[in-house]
Design a protein around this nucleic acid. Structure first.
Lengths: 215, 215, 215, 215
DNA sequence: TATGAATGAGTTTTCATTCAT
DNA sequence: TATGAATGAAAACTCATTCAT
């Protein structure tokens, strides 16, 4: 059952609870990572742990729904960016900024099997991956994106930058990911011509990586 | 008592075990983060859990000793870099590459109270911070380091880049931090002149941050 | 939060469990002393170890609640004794008999910091200490209590007599504290006029002793 | 092998170690009871844990040797008392004072199977029990010992009084057993004629009790 | 022989998940 | 449906005992 379907059928109070849990989970996962105690999430959401479990039968489904939400918002942004931005580079930058803003990285890699397993999300996921990949290629062709950067590199950057260093848990207000993203973006611009070590991570490569993940 | 002193007094077999534990801890912390089960570390080191606890009375002391080791190695590199590199920028780059190579970030921020509390390390810590800060300032004065970058920004970059995305635990061989470091370094060069959001993190600021950390 | 308050708010089954745990703890502490394994207590109470920990977050809080209960019952007895007994000596005897009956000694000294730290109990503790001390003084003035006996001596006697000798763990049914208490009470009567070695332990002295205890 | 035999055969340094361990064990058992960590005893004795185990293959043999030592000293005192004191009551009092002085109670009941199992001690044990029992009977016949007191009651009193209340571990210097012993002795005198609850514990009864102990 | 290192079983404590109210 | 109680598996940590140096 997709989130939307679930949401549509729920009683008003149940839907409110569900959203409070998601919001609390977003905060707590950001602070403590995706292994944070669910008790804490329920507590911050102001609901009982039983209520949390009624809406999200296990930790994965909570993570999955948050990822799905991030992905949906990312897709909205990406569609708008492609339509409104002057070129591929600017579209890409706008998308990445949005993902970092959402702290998407705090949940772990964006395209894991957890999401892949959710059939209802297949469409938006595929569309997002396709859009980003095409934009990456266009930017490279335009000579605005640095040589040797793959779509998977972009994904990993979002992950690296969108989560606070371990131990800075409660200090997220002092944590400035946007700052480090801008440095990174400058490093991604085509003006940088030094060859990079390692190999580019394409969408295909990324999928393979995730297939090997246990989570 | 510093690691070196402890090490010197131990019986041969005990020292071997101690080093195996440290090596295993380095791997396991890299894969799973600094909350990884100590059982797992003991198992990989090929010793009983009791042996681990005899050498390291609690998790903190294990983390601390690894941090201390990283810091000592970082200081060695930094000293050599200052002596041998043609300018401040190259010295800084060499130091940061080394820290990322050591995956220093997998333990959390480098200058936390855990280290500060270890008096025997005060000297090397202070020397390292001093050297890096001076080099950062020199590089800025030289016009090689981007405007608005503080020493604390450098530290946080090391942390962000030197640990694998959550969930990529067992795949560290596929994880290419050096690649992302080089992108970041290009973003740090003075050729980039866009103003950065947020504020620079100086050594002072960093210390304050760490003082607020609970860990 | 006092035990009574906690108890009132709990669900029926939870309250039943809580009381079973307390009852089991009373038995087990009597048999094995206040360091007895909590597993054993949970097992005898017929609940999971997790349930025990839900009600009593650590060993201290279990000990504290039992002490609090003993103290409350002791206070009830002392009040009644003062009201109903013909003189101070008889009141004192009645109180001490009750405390020994409760095996208060099996938990260690009655007025430790563990209790002192529980603010909700301050009142009953202070009232009890005050009542006992006044009664001790009255009995001495009446010429019924032996010279040189302080209120703290009474407390320590309760502790010494109200716990079985080490190793008699499972034989508490064969252990006859009431017997030894009566001997002791006869020794405390004013008919005994030999001077005692050491010094009297007053309430003040006792408090000082407890302040020095680590537990 | 009895303690004496062991002692006689040992090299001078080994015997010194053995005695240091016994002395440390006496202190530590007094402070923490007979379950105290053996590490702590070795540390205070200034020897390695291995040395402790070479002399005392397990905890029991350490406890047993201390008990044996107490018993031997008690027997010496009892013999002297019988020879020198004017009557049975004074002999008994002298013996009990000595046992409390030795803090014999800190090891648990004096006649447990642990001692009974040590054949080399049979003789002194049997002699001591016989002497004490005869003296108890004589004192009762003399009309100096309270009616209804058995030899086992005396033993248990020694145990109850000769160990500090739990939690007063490190404060043994503030703990005044001699004071409480004198009160108890006054309660044991024949001038007290109130009947006692429970039943007298004779030597036979005591042996039966100990046979039921698991320790 | 003395030492202290190694081991693993026993305890404490936490937390995901299920279930009774 | 919402709640929070109950459970037990997992992880941290201690310590008796054995064994290598």
């Amino acid at each position: 059952m997709s989130e939307r379907e679930q949401g549509a059928r729920l009683r008003a109070d149940a839907r409110r609870n569900r959203e409070q849990v998601l919001a609390a989970a977003r905060d707590v996962f950001l602070e403590q990572g995706p292994d944070a105690p669910l008790d804490e999430i329920a507590r911050r959401a102001g609901v009982g742990i039983g209520t949390l479990y009624r809406r999200f039968p296990d930790r994965d489904s909570l993570v999955r729904d948050l990822m799905a939400d991030n992905m949906r918002r990312g897709l909205d942004e990406m569609r708008a960016a492609v339509a409104e931005e002057p070129d591929a580079w600017h579209a890409l930058v706008r998308f990445v900024r949005r993902m970092v803003e959402l702290r998407a990285g705090s949940l772990g890699p964006v395209l894991s099997d957890r999401i892949r397993a959710d059939p209802a999300l297949g469409a938006s996921r595929d569309e997002l991956v396709g859009l980003v990949e095409a934009t990456v290629e266009q930017a490279r062709a335009d000579g605005t994106l640095r040589e040797g950067i793959g779509m998977g590199d972009i994904s990993l950057l979002i992950v690296m930058i969108g989560r606070p260093p371990h131990g800075l848990a409660e200090l997220t207000s002092r944590w400035q990911p946007a700052r480090y993203l801008e440095i990174m973006l400058d490093g991604l611009a085509a003006t940088n011509t030094r060859p990079l070590p390692g190999r580019a991570i394409t969408a295909t490569e990324l999928r393979e990586l995730f297939r090997m993940m246990k989570g």
